[in-house]
């Protein structure tokens, strides 16, 4: 408890440390969970690969370029899922009364929800994304420069933030959708699926939904266009490839607004 920051985080660290201990104590089932998560990643990659088994260029991209998109987006999603994946099971928290218990503790509700669990098994998905990213960087026609490395790093971090925001968004909306929580799958898991696609193939509506409202196109596709130097599809300008942090800020503003509305609804303010 030397510095104020670590003192501030101590309550969250205590909860998370206990969650990690609990998961690792069931070794056999944890190993099986890791295996299944790895398989999830592999199957998702295979679904992209099969399409390229049939054609060489899809949506203006070759397989190595799409591997870059897949790698960046899938790794970011896996980490967001690890940290925030439990948030989109909000109805479970409400039904079990866990949420009411959060009200009785002196931390912000959202921070408590996020820090209430962690799914270590999602780590097993990272190697798949990392391998796709590595393959893409070697095989695709990457324009290497310090700026490229910076772009990849910024995109990856922003991608984690964007997907985390989608989980929070889902949690906020699920206050209204206690019996219809599945609806948020449309943009959470739909967002993951969309993020691994070449957005050039999308219709206008999809571009609005996944390019602007839930901005997953910034977590992989648009930045990769800059890395391999391809033109951006309408309506995204070239500089949008660098705009992942902006998209992340937007996603979080949107998520926090959803969360606030949800909590107000739960407390019954304003009817």
């Amino acid at each position: 408890m030397a510095d104020p920051a670590s003192a501030l985080l101590a309550p969250y660290k205590a909860v998370l440390a206990s969650r990690i201990r609990a998961q690792r104590s069931y070794r056999a089932s944890f190993a099986l969970d890791l295996g299944s998560s790895l398989l999830v990643g592999l199957v998702e990659l295979a679904e992209v690969w099969i399409l390229f088994h049939n054609v060489t260029v899809l949506g203006g991209m070759s397989f190595p370029s799409i591997a870059l998109v897949f790698g960046l987006a899938d790794m970011a999603f896996a980490l967001a899922d690890l940290a925030c994946g439990h948030c989109d099971r909000l109805p479970t928290y409400v039904r079990a009364g866990t949420l009411d218990v959060f009200y009785l503790r002196p931390q912000p509700l959202l921070a408590q929800l996020v820090a209430s669990d962690i799914s270590l098994r999602r780590l097993a998905r990272c190697p798949v994304g990392a391998a796709a990213l590595g393959y893409g960087l070697v095989a695709a026609d990457v324009q290497w420069s310090p700026a490229t490395i910076a772009l990849l790093a910024v995109t990856f971090l922003s991608g984690c933030a964007i997907f985390s925001a989608l989980f929070i968004c889902a949690a906020g909306l699920q206050f209204f959708l206690i019996n219809g929580a599945e609806m948020t799958n449309a943009f959470v898991y739909g967002g993951r699926y969309a993020a691994t696609q070449p957005a050039r193939v999308w219709s206008g509506a999809l571009k609005v939904v996944f390019g602007m409202v839930f901005p997953v196109v910034f977590a992989g596709y648009l930045p990769v266009l800059r890395v391999v130097d391809l033109p951006s599809p309408h309506p995204f300008p070239e500089w949008a490839g660098w705009a992942a942090p902006l998209a992340a800020v937007w996603a979080w503003l949107f998520a926090i607004a959803c969360w606030r509305c949800g909590v107000r609804h739960y407390q019954g303010a304003g009817g």
Partner: peptide
């Protein structure tokens, strides 16, 4: 469905 259609039609 719309996402699947987009990528599969393109294929």
């Amino acid at each position: 469905g719309f996402l699947k259609a987009a990528i599969l039609f393109a294929t």
